[in-house]
Simulated scan of single mutants.
Amino acid sequence: MFERIAQNTLTSHLSWSPAVAILGPRQVGKTTLARALLETHPGAIYLDLESPQDRARLGEGPLFLKANADRLVILDEVQNAPELFSVLRGEIDRSRRPGRFVLLGSASFELLRQSQSLAGRLSLIDMFPLLVHEVGSDLATVQELWVRGGFPPSFTAVDAQASWAWREAFMRHLLNTDLPALGLRVDAESLRRFWRMLAHVHGQLFNASAIANSLDVSAPTVTRWLDHMVGALLVRKLEPFHVNLGKRLVKAPKIYVRDSGLLHSLLGVTSVTDLQGHPMTGASWEGFVIDQIAAHLPAGASLSFYRTAVGAELDVVVESGPRKIGFEIKFSIAPKVTKGFWQSLQDVQPDKTYIVAPVQQRWPFAEGVEVISVGDIAGVLAG
């Protein structure tokens, strides 16, 4: 239905890498993307490692993989079979043929930990929920994507009520099944309370002690829970930009629920009407835009934010080689900036700065600063 950006990336990586891993949360479209390879690669094999039948078909691994050495093998939810990674390494070393394996995983920390034995043999692709660049950049579509989020079943639901119901069921499954299976053995109600608290501090500096006091647990426990949420690709931890300026810079990361639709479910926001005047509207828009920026980062680029103790702040700093790009995010069709914004530009000295707002056309704001729409992000990062 949608032409995913990851499709071209996957095709490119298969042309030179023996194994490609696609990382993304459940229901983001990884399986749909991989199954499309069955049509373009005759003889390709797809195995879901959560399926007992497919696990039995795979057997212990070596014999099956050797018997299919000339075929593309797609292994879904591969973090559930850690014993396979040493087998994959042996198969790859026997024949460095590109496009040998595609591995799908919905838990980045598990897959990356297990795949250390494949260092130098495995390329990684991050797959995001649906993006503006994939669904359309007109204001109505952007608004719908922002409210419902980018998980395809939520975005394409027949109405707002069906979208809400899908997200609620999805979160229940995550809390009751997926997160415990990944090692976060905490009762679902406590995890939901924690996730809801993260939603209410979305876009703010992470304070483990404050959340721990509210939950009556220790700060290290809260930090461990957060690490699992980050590893399960449900929460983004945005680290501060550090530069030797002799200034007092904040050291704590900022926290974002990675999908705006899930954020709105946790906040009880069911429609765009609910968002109007909601105290979290600006923070929600900020997280939505940051997801778009993260999805279009050039290879090797880093993402951070800048803030000093005296109020200089820039929402996003992208470092790509010698180039620095700044982004300020405003939910206003006539955005205004503060003195702290101008101070941050003096400190960081980005090559170009953009103010991302819900506008239809871009325009120059000041020398070196331009107002752009969320649909323009891919282009300015590519340039």
Rank of each mutant, 00 (worst) to 15 (best):
L38C: 13
A181K: 11
S117H: 09
Q53C: 09
F365N: 04
R55G: 11
K247D: 08
A283M: 01
G383Q: 14
L191V: 04
L118W: 00
F327Y: 07
A219T: 14
R71V: 15
D54L: 01
A165F: 13
L266K: 08
T156I: 13
F206D: 08
R148T: 00
D227W: 03
Y354W: 11
G99T: 09
L234N: 01
L182I: 15
L191R: 11
G183R: 01
R248A: 13
L345Q: 04
P18G: 06
W363Q: 15
G59D: 12
R94T: 11
R26Q: 14
L37H: 05
G203V: 06
I92M: 10
I329W: 09
E313M: 04
T281E: 02
R35W: 10
M1W: 15
L314I: 10
L112K: 14
P52Q: 14
A312I: 02
V318G: 00
M229H: 09
D351G: 15
E50D: 13
V135L: 02
K352D: 10
T40A: 05
K336V: 14
A334F: 04
V317R: 00
V317E: 01
E83P: 11
E367N: 09
E77N: 07
A199T: 01
W342Q: 03
T273M: 13
Q360E: 15
E370I: 11
W146C: 11
